[in-house]
């Protein structure tokens, strides 16, 4: 087990190095002066130039430059954003929680709705209910997320006027940034309108969460159903049934446990999909998260921001993936042998 963990850690380190080399090389791949891309300074004066060149080791080889880059990453001395001229690390720290909050609620929904429905669909695979679920699932699987978001906005916000269209909370509520997660922040804030603010924030959350949860939920439904059906074919289930247990008992005691094990693995896979879909969702709902920020950076040709954003998002995605894989292995000794 320890050996396994060590191997994973080693792989993670290897991945991070690969990613950072890639991010570093972007400084050269993007148009413009590499020094500007690395510092994020839009105008470098003649006095600054030699100092910066020395600090960034621009006159030495690529390897020295890369090591300097790595050093800056770890010491938190990141580049500035072209557009705001603010340090990128701080900027991202402000935005990241918004994305994580949205993604985690969507992930929770996809599990708590997707898994039970998937199980229901597997109980009678040829039944009407099961067919209906499959139909809805394949539709949810095929729908373009931005169009779905627009449809919901058109219906619930514009036509019915029930729900807000943008942002995390009404702009008149001033909630201090403590954890960056809106709901805990509201609870922590001393504002007199806490309950009001909570309700307001929930109303803002509703549509984006539904939109973001749609795709992973349908994936979960399909995944759980298939896993259940597979398990159903296994010989130990047949044995259990032969012993005279009824359907419910078999499902409960044997099938479920084995079918749900791979679901842990899904957390990681779903998470990476969620982060991508969150970018689009954030753009549509003006959600002040990292995805919208990254897309805006692409529009603004804000190269330092793209560079840093890619590094952070891919590292995050891969780390979460690796963690769930480890978790999966902990629960499932069989997987360790691979």
């Amino acid at each position: 087990m320890i050996l396994y963990l060590l191997r994973r850690m080693f792989l993670l380190a290897f991945v991070f190095i690969a990613l950072s080399i890639f991010a570093f090389s972007l400084g050269y791949l993007f148009p413009g002066e590499p020094l500007q891309n690395f510092t994020g300074l839009r105008h470098i004066s003649a006095e600054q130039l030699p100092l910066l060149q020395q600090e960034y080791r621009m006159e030495q080889g690529y390897i020295a430059q890369y090591l300097a880059y790595l050093g800056r990453i770890f010491s938190g001395n990141w580049a500035l954003s072209f557009s705001s001229q603010q340090p990128l690390l701080q900027e991202m720290q402000m935005l990241m929680p918004a994305t994580l909050e949205l993604a985690s609620y969507a992930l929770l929904i996809s599990f708590f709705i997707g898994i039970p429905i998937g199980i229901i669909a597997a109980i009678k695979p040829e039944g009407t209910l099961s067919k209906l679920i499959s139909a809805v699932a394949v539709a949810g699987y095929s729908i373009p997320v931005f169009w779905w978001a627009l449809l919901l906005i058109m219906l619930f916000s514009l036509a019915l006027g029930w729900l807000p269209t943008a942002g995390r909370i009404g702009v008149l509520y001033e909630i201090n940034h403590v954890t960056g997660f809106m709901l805990p922040d509201i609870l922590l804030s001393g504002t007199a309108h806490r309950q009001e603010a909570m309700l307001n924030a929930l109303r803002h959350l509703l549509l984006p969460t539904i939109v973001l949860a749609t795709f992973p939920t349908t994936v979960m439904i399909r995944f759980t159903r298939d896993a259940m059906l597979d398990v159903w074919e296994q010989s130990y289930i047949k044995t259990a049934r032969a012993k005279g247990l009824n359907r419910g008992q078999v499902l409960y005691r044997h099938a479920l446990r084995n079918a749900l094990l791979p679901v842990i693995r899904q957390i990681g896979l779903q998470f990476s999909t969620l982060i991508t879909l969150a970018m689009i969702t954030e753009v549509i709902f003006s959600w002040p998260g990292i995805g919208r920020w990254l897309i805006d950076s692409i529009y603004q040709r804000n190269y330092p921001a793209i560079q840093a954003g890619l590094l952070v998002i891919s590292t995050l995605v891969i780390t979460v993936n690796m963690l769930t894989e480890i978790l999966h292995t902990v629960f499932n000794p069989l997987a360790r042998k691979r």
Binding site: I153, S157, L158, G161, L163, P164, T165, A166, G167, G170, V171
Partner: peptide, 8 residues
């Protein structure tokens, strides 16, 4: 415009 109609 949407924000006007939803009174945001």
């Amino acid at each position: 415009m949407a924000k006007l109609f939803t009174h945001e």
